[in-house]
Design a protein around this nucleic acid. Structure first.
Lengths: 207, 207
DNA sequence: ACAAATACAGAACAGTGTTCATTATATTTG
DNA sequence: CAAATATAATGAACACTGTTCTGTATTTGT
């Protein structure tokens, strides 16, 4: 049955080619230029063909999002060498914010856009968001380890992790969606850095 | 010249009618149903007529956003009776989060959607975002007063205010954009509340 | 009453996501 | 090998979207 798995392999290859083209459009042209027709044009296919590989655009975006999460956890792998939980928490926050700056379009796809999430909801009912789930679990794990070590006060690790996530996501989202225009241009990045530093100061002092 | 100001009055009335129709569509049908044609239909005008009152859709959204900010500062007016800065900060955060729950579509318009901001940038160059600017200044003011009173440690009030804003915005944005599916459904609101409580605990203890 | 300015609408353009009937290709069967 | 069948890809169409342009009423000023 060597012919059957060749068929399957070719199919997944074409599927990946579609995703590659979409990612390329995303990073090069911005996320408003990512249309089914533009994707189809870059891989020299008809728009209708894409629907043989993805149910609709949202499902395509979800697949792209999942690849984005693989990149994020790869970039987040560096912080495992740090031992102190507070420092580890700070490192993961800075890596996360750095990711938002290095890959703004991917960040939009993963944490801001609604499209991929409606596909995720429709696909597997209640709480199926593979990428986000494992990434959040990682933060919860760090907090829990800090509590177990006695570095942080006993508390609900889930809530504390959510606080950390909300802080760093809030900074990234406000920046990416142009809401930091309330600050003079040269103060935006410094203010973000100072806010994050202050936040981790609070954690080190009082969490 | 009674006829000239009647003209002007009628023009602003029609402009407001367009905004009212748009807001009605926003709150009743959701923000993806707000198209120029749908707005035109509800006020029984031609789509082209709207362009006599707004340069484009983004400018219309910006005007709607501004009205949203007026509502927000009205709802935020309650907190002036509180004297302790930390309590005041907590109250403004809870009001802000409550606003996001009571008026999710307005919140999207004011703090998440990109459209209105490109109009704001195009309209008045660098840092013209009337609504957001005054709202943020209010938070900065509370922090600065806390520092002056000796309740908070001496520091950059702007950065601290940004931290507070990012925290509460992060919670709201993660929730509105469905990213809290990482938590079981019944844990989402409690976790948000606990995260916010923990955050203001940290502020009270260590800011 | 006539000229000028204003307000509005219809149609059109280019773009979007999506579906469906049809054609071309590749595989399996007689 | 030839015919039947399954697979892959497409072109055209539908119902939308934001936006612009030209033409037509209506109202204003003289």
């Amino acid at each position: 049955m060597g012919i059957a798995d060749r068929k399957l392999r070719e199919k997944t290859e074409r599927r990946q080619a579609i995703l590659d083209a979409a990612l390329h459009l995303f990073t090069q042209q911005g996320f408003e230029k990512v249309s089914m027709r533009n994707i189809a044009d870059t891989i020299e296919y008809s728009p209708a063909t894409i629907y043989l590989y993805f149910k609709d655009k949202n499902e395509l975006l979800l697949a792209l999002q999942t690849q984005g999460f693989e990149l994020l956890v790869r970039e987040l792998g560096v912080i495992t060498s740090i031992e102190h939980p507070a420092e580890q928490l700070r490192a993961v926050g800075e890596q996360f914010l750095g990711f938002a700056f290095r890959h703004p379009e991917l960040f939009e796809l993963m944490f801001i856009m609604s499209g991929p999430m409606v596909a995720a909801q429709a696909c597997a009912g209640a709480n199926a968001w593979p990428g986000g789930g494992s990434a959040f679990a990682q933060v919860v794990g760090i907090v829990q380890r800090g509590i177990d070590k006695g570095v942080f006060r006993p508390q609900n690790a889930e809530s504390a992790a959510l606080m950390v996530w909300a802080q760093v996501h809030g900074l990234a989202a406000l920046h990416l969606r142009q809401r930091l225009v309330v600050l003079p241009e040269e103060r935006r990045l410094p203010a973000m850095q100072e806010a994050l530093t202050l936040f981790y100061d609070l954690i080190r002092r009082a969490l």
